[in-house]
Design a protein around this nucleic acid. Sequence first.
DNA 1: GTATTTTCGATATGCATTGTCAATCGGGAG
DNA 2: CTCCCGATTGACAATGCATATCGAAAATAC
Lengths: 125, 125
Amino acid sequence: MQRDTVQRRAIRKVFKDLGRPLSPLEILQTARAQVPNLGIATVYRSVKGLTDEGWLVPIDVPGEPQRYELSGKDHHHHFSCRQCGRIFDFDGCPKDLAKLVPQGFLMEDHEVFLYGRCADCRKAR
Amino acid sequence: MQRDTVQRRAIRKVFKDLGRPLSPLEILQTARAQVPNLGIATVYRSVKGLTDEGWLVPIDVPGEPQRYELSGKDHHHHFSCRQCGRIFDFDGCPKDLAKLVPQGFLMEDHEVFLYGRCADCRKAR
DNA sequence: GTATTTTCGATATGCATTGTCAATCGGGAG
DNA sequence: CTCCCGATTGACAATGCATATCGAAAATAC
């Protein structure tokens, strides 16, 4: 069974604190504040475990490494800040997607990505 | 200077014939109909050349290898068929994206991906 | 307390992509 | 048209990156 270790507690805390999709490297860097010599292998193992048990879900962002976020959120999409590289959630999605589907095609799912500057980066400069 | 070789002619022809975004492997497999022992390195080299001169543009599809398509098309997005794995273009895009941007964020760009079955795959079964 | 799982750190894998190099080809000079 | 040289090719090895695995040491659950 999955044990409750300081490393896994730290990783879970990182997700609950930041509340946005994180890459393995972001998880590592943030969790090291609590567990200084956390290994990247442990991050991958824990993420895999947490994904298998459904606590995390994988997120694919075009041209970026795999990220993960807490499962169970409402339907939403992602905003990528070109300056700081962070990914944020936003609620809602376009309502007129069905009109765009080509003749004869069947749409089962959709993804929307917005790119730009996040509030922090706009303020910073 | 760039020479006009049978390999590059074949690769350009593949893009003009298929008219959809192609991965290096798709290019290789299709172009081998004309140039049987075309090498993958040549595909990468040619694609890089064609991209540098602006004839191709790179396309990132979440969770998939890089693809390329002819430049100069009108604004459009991509449909990914879950059955055959091919990527198709579709025109137009949602008009109500601006409403979705979080407070204080600046949207500079957007991407939309649709997933499902293409017309061929729906017919096939 | 003891058996078992988990960790770390290094090393290994899988994959897409790039480099190497001898052999070949393209295309302008003659 | 033919020659010639540098650009290009194809096979293969090498890289880069994300991810997985290994074994000894440490931590956890019962």
